[in-house]
Structure formats: structure tokens, C-alpha cells
Nucleic acid binder design. Structure first.
Lengths: 89, 89
DNA sequence: GGGCATTATCGTATTTTTACGATATACGAT
DNA sequence: ATCGTATATCGTAAAAATACGATAATGCCC
């Protein structure tokens, strides 16, 4: 994957306000909540799950199984790499 | 427009490798070429024109009429604002 | 094991994006 | 005025994104 493609992929992942909001929230609350995101956003649970999947596929967040629930958190290394790619423009 | 929405809009504009390539090229060649972009990318002229339109609508590039051709250049202020929004994450 | 809570996935409808060719528009040059 | 070049726009087809409800899957607790 070229740098341009990586950058485009990461940008695309953040190319929706809901996903920006999700990432920002995960960065704020260091403890990784998940169902709370559904409560915060005005979207159905399945829609939030889809957005989470897209962020996960882009590598911006990770999800760890924790009992019956899944605990998401931001991948700060990946975010840092994203910032560097943007700054390289 | 909230910060999240602005960030999402800018990210969406760069959420395609062709548009990343266009922006990067405009930043490299300070003189604003246009038809050259069509030669560089493996895309039809109309498709390139559409990508330019999206970048222009996001404010990342500007187009100035220069005789029969239109001269595009990157909007460095807007790009700087984008970088700041990303860094604020 | 049965029920409860949490999350993912499926199916689907609607909208948006992407890409192209064809056509229109604008301008300089002849 | 006509031609050629450069760019935008239109029309359209195919693919992808977005959103939802319904359903499945997972794991705790009784």
C-alpha cells in the first residue's frame, strides 16, 4: 500500500461525522466503553456497530472482548501515524 | 458547522487516493497546472474534473481562470487548518 | 439449561460515489 | 467567424456507503 493509499484509507475512515465523534469519545474516556457510544449518538445500534467496524478496519480503534461486552479503544500509534501522514502533505 | 463536521468533510475530500495524489501534486509543483493532472492520473478527463470539484468544494484547492485554461493550486491555509484539526484529536 | 444483556451480522432500501463518454462552454489563435 | 484546446457539465451505469429492523451469536447469572 502506498502512502497515498494509506492516507486515503485513513481519511475515508474519518470521513463521516459519526466516526469522528466515536474516535474523539474513545480518546477522551480512556477506559474503553462501547454500548455508551450507542447512547451518545442518535443512531441505531446496528449502525454504530457498522461505523465501529469501519474504524477498526482502518486500524484507528481496537476492540477487546471483555466478558459479554466488547471494549473499544483508540489505537494511538495508528492515530499518530495518521497525523504524520497528514503533516507530510 | 461543528469541528467534527468540518474535520469529516475535509477527511472525506481526501478519502480517495486520486484526490490525495492531486493535492500532493499541486503542493509539489507550486505553479498550478491542471491538464497535467489528467495526464498523470489513469482517469478520464471528466473524472479528474469531478475530483477537482470535490477538492474545491472542501476548500482544499482553488481554481483561477487563466486564459483558456484553469489554474489550480492548493489552499495552504485550508490545509493548515485541516492539519490543526487532525492534531486536535 | 434458560433468560438477560451486549454486540455483530444479515437483509434491504435509499442515497452517494465513482467512472465514463458525450456534449457544452470559454477562450486564443488563425 | 472558425478552429482547436482546455475544462466543466450532463446523462448514465455500476459500485459503495448509510441507515434501519430483525436476527444470530456470545457469555454472564440464576
Amino acid at each position: 500500500m502506498t502512502n497515498d493509499q494509506t492516507l486515503a484509507t485513513l481519511c475515508k475512515a474519518l470521513g463521516h461525522p459519526a466516526r469522528v465523534a466515536i474516535l474523539r469519545h474513545l480518546l477522551q474516556v480512556n477506559s474503553c466503553i462501547c454500548g455508551d457510544i450507542v447512547n451518545i449518538l442518535p443512531l441505531a445500534q446496528s449502525t454504530v456497530s457498522q461505523h465501529l467496524k469501519q474504524l477498526k478496519e482502518a486500524g484507528l480503534i481496537r476492540g477487546e472482548i471483555e466478558g459479554p461486552r466488547i471494549c473499544y479503544c483508540a489505537d494511538k500509534d495508528r492515530l499518530a501515524a495518521f497525523k504524520n501522514l497528514i503533516l507530510s502533505l
